[in-house]
Design a protein around this nucleic acid. Sequence first.
RNA 1: GGGGCGGUAGCUCAGCCGGUUAGAGCAGGGGACUCAUAAUCCCUUGGUCGUGGGUUCGAGUCCCACCCGCCCUACCA
Length: 569
Amino acid sequence: MTRQLITSALPYINGIKHLGNMVGSMLPADVYSRYLRQRGHEVLYICATDEHGTPAELAAQEAGLPVAEFCARAHDQQKAIYDGFQLSFDWFGRSSSPQNREITQEIARELHANGFIEERAIRQVYSVADGRFLPDRYIVGTCPHCGYDKARGDQCENCTRVLDPTDLLNPRSAISGSSELEVRETKHLFLLQSKLTDEVEAWIAENGDNWPVLASSIARKWLTEGLQDRAITRDLEWGVPVPADTWPELAAAGKVFYVWFDAPIEYIGATKEWADATGGDWRSWWYEADDSVRYTEFMAKDNVPFHTVMFPATILGSRQPWKKVDYVKAFNWLTYYGGKFSTSQKLGIFTDVALELLPADYWRYYLMANAPESDDSSFTWDLFASTVNKDLADTLGNFVNRVLSFSRKRFGDEVPAGAENGETEIALGAQIADLLAEYEAQLDALNFRKAAQALRALWSAGNAYLDVTAPWTQIKTDPEAAARTLRTAINLIHLYSVVSEPFIPTAARTIRESFTLADDTRTWITPDEARALAQVPAGTAFTVPPVLFAKITDEDLATWTERFGGGAQ
RNA sequence: GGGGCGGUAGCUCAGCCGGUUAGAGCAGGGGACUCAUAAUCCCUUGGUCGUGGGUUCGAGUCCCACCCGCCCUACCA
């Protein structure tokens, strides 16, 4: 059993995340974490809110709150939603934590000591009315090429040309609208990534081959172009301050590190938050841990360059034995009817609203069974309803209900004894063992769609077994055989409750709690146990749980499609 | 402009290093069954594998060109 370090990309502090954010990082990381824990691995699943940067400051300003207060509230809000999704973080931290500040500054000092940080003066647009330097995209104006009057300083959305903010005609602040802009000189720290390109390339060559192409190809693309030196500080109020002991002048000027510099370091910082809170040993996971720990990162494709190139460059340049990622699981986008989920246009489904409509298991299963692993995938209400109804309600939920109801009706509140297992049960056991092996193999390989398919095949096998044995017929001629069938089917139900937990933890627990089984501490099923189908002995008391998954009705669909604008695009 | 990924049945997707009649689930059609959330199980109709060339005994799978979608292109995160 290895030690498994798992992180999912940090959700940005500002705004409620939508289902696309959920399926691309936190949810698969949770499914994987739960699976590995169940298999007996020592797992540490770490996530956090990413709290620094211009958008957070502006959102706080708009909310009329001090940025620290704004972020504290937003963090709690996000945390509550993730609890609702049953995300089993070992720690859900904050990139604004003292722990992250400490480690970020430490790594910056190490980079400096090794000659990978340089101070440079750059010229940047300053908005007098807003009292802040503006990132390029926060400057709008008229495009000099096409005349579009809402072009952003980084790119014109109309003609797609890449721009410099000083190219814009009639430039103004996107925040206040003020045209009182000046180009000012400001000093920043640059990470000399150009000096680290070869090392990162060698590291990718050695480690990236097994990653999904989505991750490795993006990484290689950046490297073939050669890494450029990159500014890692900003002129903002809210961020990790540049340490005064190393850069007194910049510290005095109030410089903070760029959000993308401190955000990945928060994986380490959050682990220290966890250690400080629980007495855990954070260093054993992150420092000189290369042989004992396997580290898997989950993220959507937009995050890949930062995780495969820039962060590794930072770590390599520190010359310290920080743990580097072993496997990068990258996802494409989940779209809403082929279009982008959009906060500003209120398009799509957001995590808070999702939980108001239906319990987490419905979303968890649907999202993972249709995860955008090889390409963007499209959320549609029709597919959602058909997946939930067919797989969860009909195949699994109905199986549990039909077996337990029938058994109770005919044999009472305990698992019936009945005849010894016959050929049908032996064949079933072999089939279940095979399907379970397939399910495990797909989860081990982080193929979530295929894992969900294998799980559904396990559920379906139970229904097929009932069809072959037909206990409602057996009961008339051979009650012992009927009892055997039900005993076996009940054992399947218990097996399902164990192995389904990564995808549908709440329903799995509900099913499991319907058995009064002493010492039921089993967390996984061995091949022999799968073949035997005898973990729940005759005589075990059980109850029939309430309907596990309610079906989504046509009325529900009509209501939600109307409310969320499904298909309109 | 440059680059990456993708374009396979009505829908969502599998198809490893090229090799016999291109697969799954859902939807559609037929049948079986009645324990169960009108559930289940079995059978089955759908595809000139984006387009056009090329390599090969043989290509969805390799090469070239083009079309379409998404993403990246370093100051959003």
